[in-house]
Design a protein around this nucleic acid. Structure first.
Lengths: 227, 227
DNA sequence: TTCATAGTTTGATCATGAACGAAGCATTGG
DNA sequence: CCAATGCTTCGTTCATGATCAAACTATGAA
């Protein structure tokens, strides 16, 4: 069972602090340039370039060239999932409840997990959706119910696009801070996109934390069905 | 968001090939001594000792001294979960469908994931349990139903112990090879224990692969309800 | 064209940490 | 008590890889 080599390559990539900082920044879902990532990682540009090449080689990142910039993103939601689960494990094994900066409570409340919402508010949404049978578990996979599709269409989501996409609409994603599932997949993305495009919610200065406007909170409560 | 340091410490631990081999071996759920792990990792004893100290410091392993031996185990099922998800990611990003040794098909069919069954057979069980409403998803957590409790008690499991334990009876665990959930938690462990103690199933020479006797296969089909 | 910006490559430096032999504890068995 | 086994500690060697300055390439702007 030569399982070692495979996982140690990936883990080794994440194992460098500078690279881990880059990956952490990319979990916000936005594409970032090499220079930006260098600044975030706290290393010089050549160093960052080398790191980014390794991450890309290892399949964790993909990049697109635009003019003289090169934009990097995580190669998929599964990368973000693994990073979140690593955080969850780190929180338990290292004992310390995550480097608890001043903005940490807000991170726990609502943050971006690659392309969908995470945090307590996202977990509450997931629970509510299930309780109201808008989504359901079937054969070890999540499924959107008919009433769910109607509800979300009503809310303003482009459900045709969500249903037509190759990627599954519903997928549970383990929440780092709450240790419970929240909603990933096309539907999770559609919901986040809606909130961002309507500016009902905004990212905090490029980080992962998310702030809701009063109207955003109203819409959120609408989603939870608590009004 | 100083998320980097935390995860890079853990990932760095897994990132060393020798340590990754040790962790992989421990995913079989059995406690192993330092010497055994040294042999598996392919390093000398002093080297292994240093690795094990680091893994223990990092909270990934726990150890108990028994006489002049020291037995190491994964510190929890969450460690195994992360390792499985790393394998899953490695399989996608590195392109190669896992170092495919001769025994690989058997690994995919049935293997041990720390303390419960994984692989196609385990995924089939999970599906079947859900279809027959022996377990159900409720509020983002798995729950054992009443009929499920009766069924498993009938099958011969010590359900009193399972229900009394602090650890949740049902927990989904993402399957590395099938990319679908199988059953972890107290119930998952109880099922595996039953098969092992009755010698309906045996580990293959200390590895993770699992073999079923004819009687074991009969019992398995009983569980799936396909008879 | 010339300049400026973004990124890569090269080459050299340097620190980390993986490796093991030898010696040191600790526990068991005779 | 002594010997043998299992593991840890110590000290040394060595390879890897992270780092950055400087030179180079590529794109866009003036």
């Amino acid at each position: 069972m030569n399982v070692g080599p495979n996982i140690s390559i990936i883990a080794g990539l994440v194992g460098d602090p500078a690279r881990a900082r880059m990956l952490g920044a990319l979990m916000a879902g936005k594409a970032l340039t090499a220079s930006e990532l260098a600044a975030i990682a706290g290393v010089a540009l050549p160093t960052a370039s080398a790191h980014l090449a390794k991450l890309t080689d290892g399949g964790l990142l993909t990049s697109v060239k635009q003019g003289r910039h090169r934009y990097f993103t995580l190669s998929g939601a599964d990368v973000a999932d693994v990073l979140e689960s690593l955080m969850s494990l780190a929180e338990r094994t290292l004992g310390e409840p995550v480097k608890t900066g001043p903005r940490d409570p807000r991170l726990r409340a609502a943050r971006i997990c690659y392309d969908h919402l995470a945090g307590d508010m996202a977990v509450a949404l997931f629970d509510s959706f299930q309780k109201r049978a808008l989504i359901e578990e079937s054969r070890a996979a999540m499924r959107l119910t008919e009433s769910g599709e109607a509800f979300f269409r009503d809310f303003g989501l482009d459900m045709d696009a969500v249903m037509a996409a190759r990627r599954p609409a519903c997928r549970p994603c383990l929440d780092w801070s709450a240790r419970r599932s929240h909603l990933a997949g096309g539907l999770g993305k559609a919901i986040l996109d809606r909130f961002l495009s309507k500016t009902w919610a905004t990212r905090d200065h490029g980080g992962r934390a998310v702030s809701f406007t009063p109207e955003g909170l109203r819409q959120y409560r609408l989603l939870t069905g608590s009004v």
